[in-house]
Design a protein around this nucleic acid. Structure first.
Lengths: 223, 223
DNA sequence: AAGATTAAGTTAGAAGGTATCACGAATCTT
DNA sequence: AAGATTCGTGATACCTTCTAACTTAATCTT
């Protein structure tokens, strides 16, 4: 049975309206993009007048910040699930890609062009490092006998972002490459820079992924 | 001697004002970002009233389109110069990075999150394939004895974007990897996703570049 | 040179955006 | 039931892009 909700009806109503606002916001973002998000339109769509929204979100920026946080949370949860069900890099990569293609505006909200004056609050940094931890675990699972590069040496001394994760520099390096390479393909694809070029972005993504898992692996027959 | 300018003074004045508008636009974009570009602010900054700008640009979108075109042109020229002065991939990559760091908003305008309803006109597609041609030339200059991947086979049949360039599929593949990997690092760096992580993005960029030039090159220790 | 034409710049205003404020009304608390 | 709190509203201020009408000025034609 549900335990007694200690919150007052007012509070429950409030959180429900906040959630409904975000729902409409996502709907609008999915069609018109994040920059064109309009509080007025959301309000009218919900049957109330513009300024009423300001009872729930102090500003447009605050709403967007919460949307970004939710997007991070959604991605982190997706990765967490994938990581539980067999956490190798390939599975993880396809989870990321699937999520990004299902919610392009969410991905772009996180990793796209930043809002000029925007600064990520700590809550987001936390989720971000949670994602990084999953990635580092997956990278650590792969063997790595590649020679230490100059960048590896640099990483040995600059591993704040690993947040205490005991991975060796080569693994840190691999995680960063994983992140930046997949983002390179994904962001260009989502931005539409491949449309009209003729090839299938999914295959390029897979090729980059193959290269990541193979060429510094067990020294075996890479592919 | 300057040859007679056949244009009327009106036309010369017109192009000069258009150029001045773009200059102010870049100034504003550099500080506040592209989404916050305001025609009104530009006009007031130039000492004339808002609607006057519409004599020179039919809409805000038309101005932005021309800015994007100029940004593409600037990048293409930069790459062209670099390509003339010894066109190996490393030089090219550092030219791109230098340009991107010098004009972050220009880079983001080209490769960042797209404007929802925006569609690139043909003039831009032309410059884009000009850039691709330079990249393909540089990639073709490197030896390539890597085994054909499934993606290579796919590229053999989907090479419209190469625009008649006679590069073999492996070179096309390398060009795409070059593009996406460097963009992966650059875009995340420009978006500020590395700030606070501690490591030096320049070294990550260099490491990615090393990997690109080395591991499928001379048959080195890679595989 | 005088008149007609064209272009440029102005003000006014429509439509829409964020955000603040003051006020009435609904609701929770006591 | 009375009081305090919160919600939603309309009015308002100040932005934005963009259109329309009007004035002024430069240029072209006769």
């Amino acid at each position: 049975m549900a335990e007694m909700d200690t919150r007052t009806p007012r509070e429950r109503y409030r959180t429900q309206v906040r959630a409904e606002i975000k729902e409409h916001a996502w709907e609008q973002i999915a069609t018109t993009g994040a920059t064109a998000l309009s509080l007025n339109a959301i309000a009218k769509h919900m049957g109330m007048s513009g300024p009423a929204l300001y009872r729930y979100y102090a500003s447009r920026d605050e709403l967007i910040t919460e949307l970004i946080r939710d997007a991070y949370r959604s991605l982190a949860d997706t990765l967490h699930s994938a990581s539980l069900a067999g956490a190798d890099l390939t599975v993880l990569a396809h989870a990321v890609r699937g999520w990004a293609l299902a919610h392009p505006q969410r991905y772009l909200l996180i990793y796209g062009t930043p809002v000029p004056g925007y600064h990520a609050p700590d809550a987001i940094t936390l989720i971000s490092s949670e994602i990084m931890a999953i990635l580092l675990d997956a990278c650590a699972a792969l063997p790595s006998d590649s020679p230490a590069t100059p960048f590896d040496a640099h990483l040995a001394d600059h591993r704040d972002w690993a947040d205490g994760h005991p991975a060796p520099p080569a693994v840190l390096h691999r995680a960063l490459s994983f992140w930046t390479r997949l983002h390179g393909v994904l962001s260009l694809e989502l931005a539409g820079h491949f449309t009209g070029m003729g090839f299938d972005p999914a295959l390029l993504f897979a090729a980059e992924l193959d290269d990541l898992s193979a060429h510094r692996g067990d020294g075996g027959p890479g592919d």
